[in-house]
Design a binder for these strands. Structure first.
Lengths: 261, 261
DNA sequence: CAGTGGTCTAGACCACACC
DNA sequence: GTGTGGTCTAGACCACTGG
């Protein structure tokens, strides 16, 4: 039973109790939690207090409300995401793109939506492509699905002059790989940087990727540069936190960092 | 003014209005938002409705409540975090560890707390170290600070037999680097994997790293292996999402992935 | 129809920092 | 003291899904 004089508030005590049950496994993924009415009864509190406690766990990403069925422990099945999985260009006869070829094994059917348009890119991208306000980029906006569920979004931005009159502007898969197309048109990439950071999703992203409340995203940005340092492309990936593990294999010895002292 | 019949609820409409002001810059980082009383007055709603709207933005990580001053737009200054910044062992005369040497440049004073103990590691770590329940590991738990603020936590776990009677068990900086110490004791690492995933923090992490509500974390796990594939160390880094950009520089051409099609 | 969570109201008392 | 957000209560009506 709750104590009204403890240093922790009543809603925190209720939340603590439920959180502990989730973390120690006595409430397993998929299990149903007590209903709001149960908590009101058990702890003798007002409904909002019980709701506040549950809302804390929802915002921690531990549980999800499925009206009108109740609150349930979330199930996280993370798939591997390997940013450097393919450091070489595709063989010219590769049947389809990296995502489509690699994910098939997981047993879930890969698919994707594509949408190509000319836009003024968001500031994050404009900065990396060194575009001034008013300058345009071609964007191939995609959502990759696995088994019908959105897996991540992948938006590739190209400066307009770079891709004018290339197949990149057509809303289809590019089996040879966009990098090869770029190279064929005289734009060879010689360097790229990966940046990854973490934040809560925008409402747009919540809708596009069907994110549950309490789900953060990783933003993965790849910027590719030509021989004279000019940016040629900028890829903006949004990875839902409950669906991905980003994996880098570190080749070679010796290694020392981070744990290094 | 809000509409009570729209498809979006009242709290969502209020949240939308405030969110738009934050995102388009008319409310800049550090600016104070309208008080709850302001919103009640302006939108003619109950206090909880106004609070619900503000709570949405708090959980999105956009604003923070500073009682009794009001709600303020959050300011995110992300520092670079380079997991592969040092792929070689330190020169034997390196004065201090990677973090301490690298971060000084940023103008903020680096420091850290260290705590060494013998524990049964958390399941995430035990799995990677291939430890059975009941088997122990030595952990060096650290929090790295920049300018007095917690920057990230760095917990290095070693199987007990590997580090018994080595300087790793002493609660001090190891200037030569833990990897060299391991190597000197016959445990040479030949391979490592990096895994990064994203989630909301546990209450413990919130306290240890002084995280604001709505701040997700990146979990960065490095596992190092010996010549016969035996795990020698597991480093568990918790990176607050509002403080880090993880950067990988991709050497060499050709590159093709993710944006590849 | 019954039970679930979602939204909203109208009040109360509290802790805290600043004046 | 005054004003801020934090907690809590006690109710109301609604939307959705399942039996």
């Amino acid at each position: 039973m709750v104590s009204r004089s403890a240093s922790r508030s009543v809603k925190e005590q209720i939340a603590d109790e439920l959180r502990a049950a989730v973390l120690d496994g006595s409430l397993a993924p998929g299990d149903r939690l007590p209903t709001e009415a149960d908590l009101i009864e058990r702890h003798q509190v007002a409904r909002n207090t019980a709701r506040d406690a549950l809302a804390m766990l929802v915002n921690e990403g531990l549980i999800v409300a499925r009206r009108p069925h109740g609150y349930f422990v979330r199930d996280r099945q993370r798939m591997d995401y390997r940013p450097q999985s393919d450091l070489s260009v595709h063989p010219a006869d590769a049947p389809q793109d990296v995502f489509l070829t690699e994910q098939g094994l997981a047993g879930r059917e890969p698919s994707q939506s594509i949408d190509v348009s000319i836009v003024e890119p968001p500031p994050e991208v404009a900065k990396r492509l060194k575009l001034n306000p008013g300058e345009f980029a071609v964007v191939r906006r995609r959502v990759r699905f696995l088994g019908g569920e959105p897996f991540y979004s992948n938006d590739s931005f190209f400066p307009l002059p770079v891709v004018q009159d290339t197949p990149i502007m057509a809303p289809h898969d590019i089996s040879r790989g966009a990098n090869r197309v770029l190279a064929d048109h005289g734009h060879v990439q010689v360097k790229a940087t990966d940046e990854i950071f973490v934040r809560m999703p925008t409402p747009d992203e919540v809708k596009r990727l069907d994110l549950a409340p309490g789900t953060p995203v990783a933003v993965h940005i790849i910027t590719g540069y030509g021989p004279s340092g000019e940016p040629l492309r900028c890829v903006l990936n949004i990875l839902p936190g409950d669906r991905h593990v980003i994996i880098y294999d570190r080749p070679g010895y010796p290694l020392d960092q981070d744990g290094a002292e």
